[in-house]
């Protein structure tokens, strides 16, 4: 017996909220990307909790795909940030308006 499933979902929800807050309020492209990473990770936590609740591998398979998509997303995102920095000399999203 570990904990009720609702507590796992609550943990994932609070984590997602923190990531969303970071992505919306920070004025820094790298911190926005970090917020996206936190949100993806919270999704993986929720999926693994669901896999344990229904005793099925499906949730863990989706969590694995989330990991792969996060890796692809962060590499392309950071390359774009480097591109934008070389063009404008700043990582403030306000500078690109």
């Amino acid at each position: 017996m570990i904990v009720p499933y609702s507590h796992v979902i609550m943990l994932a929800g609070i984590l997602f909220l923190m990531g969303m807050f970071c992505a919306v309020t920070r004025r820094n492209l790298i911190m926005i990307l970090l917020g996206l990473e936190i949100m993806l990770n919270s999704g993986a936590v929720a999926f693994i909790g669901a896999a344990l609740r229904w005793q099925h591998f499906e949730g863990q398979a989706i969590a694995l795909f989330i990991l792969a998509v996060a890796a692809a997303e962060v590499s392309v995102g950071l390359a774009l940030i480097v591109c934008a920095y070389k063009r404008k000399g700043s990582i403030d999203p306000e500078a690109y308006n």
Binding site: M1, I2, P4, Y5, I9, Q55
Partner: peptide, 9 residues
Amino acid sequence: ESRIPLKAA
């Protein structure tokens, strides 16, 4: 149903 504790596996 989500209040039922999870079984370890």
